[in-house]
Design a protein around this nucleic acid. Structure first.
Length: 561
RNA sequence: UGGGGCGUGGCCAAGCGGUUAAGGCAACGGGUUUUGAUCCCGUCAUUCGGAGGUUCGAGUCCUCCCGCCCCAGCCA
């Protein structure tokens, strides 16, 4: 047995403790877990936690983890979702054991087991309408009552089941139900539905079936077929565990898996519910499932978040039974941490303001070399062109020279700043357009200040970024903010759509990026110095650059002044 | 009013009866810095939902109470 070192340095969570005990006492020979998504939507950050838990546990204890699609409800599912999910799991960096599995692979076996249960007198075809079924089920405080079809002879149920399967029964007319206990305080045990009629084709197995198994009748048996040792799911399934166990106990399954539940991930300022995310897409509140504002894995990826950042964030989460709300700031921390370490630096001016360097000859270009990372030489360097006309950010200039040096460490009329990686610059004059707005700044550089301190008496207020006007590329920059302005858009009886942040996307056109960015690749991360982390968006085309802001730099100066 | 689960600082969370209640995020001070970033250093729970009890000793065990989440799909 190989034990992963990194995972045993942290305190062991309750599932690890169970696994270790099972291994030590010989109850389990090999750890087998599974990640079982339903292909009815895209994977989100909450799924990332489940993926990391399941694959991580298998890895840590020398076992394997299956990827299995729980495709028992063709109504909501599609192949597109299957493909998107596969791509996301791969991107996250996990490798499943063997072939991808599908619940639909087991439809024939499940059907046979349904017949077996009927033969044992433990299941029956019920003809109660959906409405009646609800009434017979009772309530939270009152016991249900037995269906009048409960004692129907097995032969009859068997024949009816066949008719259901063959498409001879209309939807809603019949179900196969387990005979458990209509008086159980656990509502899930009040004769749960095993098969329902759905006369529609299945995205994977075509139209061979007119009935489809329910989650309860499928999940545990799928686990048993695959030899899953520890079936890990979220808290809301805890009430289903007795049923899960009931099936493995009453059916001739090849193994007896056990279910363990942990708290799903909730993140502040977003929703982690496939249903709600789908609503955002369907109602065009966002562009698509992979909109960079979405907490989906494809959205995070498109925004420029790395798989490693997502994984490390997930590692930082507890596997326990509490269901809290993790602060979005915690995810942000891991995103910044990864990007700070790995993203090459570049400069991009978001709100360009023209600067003419009056003591720099027209047409003269000096090529400066700048490091791509302050403390990673392996990331190399890039070239910057220094020319007479430059752009700096409008926000980095002020005419107000009464601003204190501490409060405004940027360019002020009559004073100096350091152009990052270049010269020290002095602002001398402001030029306005017809409307009175500043259209240009006339400035001069202090000679011999590239990589050198300026002479005595010249004190740059700070360092600002810039690009050459001639040697830069035009681009569009999309600034993303949180999708919701309420930390808990989902809580209570709030309608999460009411909390949508109207300013979650700001599109900046006519931004100026340094020339080296012309070779940027889609999703490849950069730090635009003093602004944040950005990556090229897939909407970019030849000569048309669109950058997404992954996340801004941490910014505490305002509070300190 | 039934069943299941959970309550440790602003958020997440270790703690498995015996040193002064880990750690991360956030926040706040300070240092370094050609990114107001990073990095570094420091501060941040006399107290563990509440009340009783057991014990030499309790966040950890017992009792009662309070609060929050999930379950009445032919969804998963």
């Amino acid at each position: 047995m190989t034990v992963d070192k990194t995972s045993i340095e942290k305190p062991h969570n309750f599932i690890q403790q169970i696994i270790e005990k099972d291994l030590a006492e010989g109850r389990v020979a090999k750890v087998v877990t599974r990640f079982p998504p339903e292909p009815n939507g895209y994977l989100h950050i909450g799924h990332a936690k489940a993926i990391c838990v399941n694959f991580g546990l298998a890895q840590a204890y020398g076992g394997v983890c299956n990827l299995r699609f729980d495709d028992t409800n063709p109504e909501a599912e599609s192949e597109d979702y299957v493909n998107a999910i596969i791509e996301d799991v791969r991107w996250l960096g996990f490798e499943w054991d063997g072939e991808i599995r599908y619940a639909s692979d087991y439809f024939a076996q499940l059907y046979t087991w349904a017949q077996y249960l009927i033969g044992e007198g433990k299941a029956y075809i019920c003809e109660l309408t959906p409405q009646q079924t609800r009434e017979y089920r009772g309530t939270l405080t009152e016991a249900g009552k037995n269906s009048p079809f409960r004692e129907r002879p097995a032969e009859e149920s068997l024949a009816l089941l066949e008719q259901m399967r063959d498409g001879e029964i209309a939807e809603g007319k019949m179900t196969l139900r387990a005979k458990v206990d209509m008086a159980s305080p656990n509502i899930n045990l009040r004769d749960p539905v095993l098969y329902r009629v759905k006369r529609i084709a299945h995205h994977r197995v075509g139209d061979g079936w007119n009935i489809y198994p329910s989650y309860d009748f499928a999940h545990g048996q799928e686990d048993a077929i695959e030899g899953v040792s520890h079936s890990i799911c979220t808290l809301e399934f805890a009430d289903h565990r007795p049923l899960y166990d009931w099936f493995t106990a009453n059916l001739p399954v090849p193994s007896t898996p056990h279910q363990y539940e942990f708290g799903r991930l909730n993140l502040s300022y977003t929703v982690t519910s496939k249903r709600k995310l789908k609503q955002l897409v369907d109602e065009k509140q966002v562009e698509a499932w992979d909109d960079p504002r979405m907490p989906t894995l494809s959205g995070l990826r498109r925004r420029g978040v790395s798989a490693q950042a997502v994984r490390e964030f997930c590692e930082s989460l507890a596997v326990a039974k509490t269901d809290g709300v993790v602060d979005m700031a915690q995810l942000d921390h891991f995103i910044r941490h990864d990007l700070n370490d790995n993203a090459p630096r570049a400069m991009c001016v978001l709100h360009p303001l023209k600067v003419t360097v009056s003591n720099w000859p027209e047409g003269e270009v000096e090529t400066l070399t700048a490091s791509c990372h302050p403390n990673r030489d392996d990331l190399g360097s890039r070239e910057l062109s220094f020319t007479r006309t430059l752009y700096i950010d409008r926000n980095d200039f002020s005419e107000d020279s009464s601003l204190s040096r501490k409060k405004f460490k940027r360019l002020v009329l009559g004073e100096w700043v350091r152009l990052r990686g270049g010269y020290v610059l002095k602002a001398e004059e402001v030029i306005r357009d017809g409307s009175g707005e500043i259209s240009e700044i006339l400035a001069s550089i202090v000679p011999n200040t590239v990589g050198e301190n300026p002479p005595e008496g010249i004190k740059p207020r700070g360092v600002i970024h810039w690009v050459s006007a001639e040697q830069s590329i035009d681009c569009e920059v999309r600034l993303y903010d949180r999708l919701f302005s309420d930390a808990n858009p989902d809580s209570g009886d709030k309608n999460f759509l009411d909390a949508i942040n109207p300013d979650s996307l700001e599109v900046l056109k006519g931004c100026k990026a340094e020339a080296s960015l012309a070779t940027a690749q889609i999703e490849q991360a950069y730090q635009f110095e003093r602004e944040g982390y950005f990556c090229l968006d897939k909407d970019s085309e030849d000569g048309k650059f669109i950058f997404n802001r992954t996340i801004s730099l941490r910014d505490n100066w305002q509070s300190k002044v």
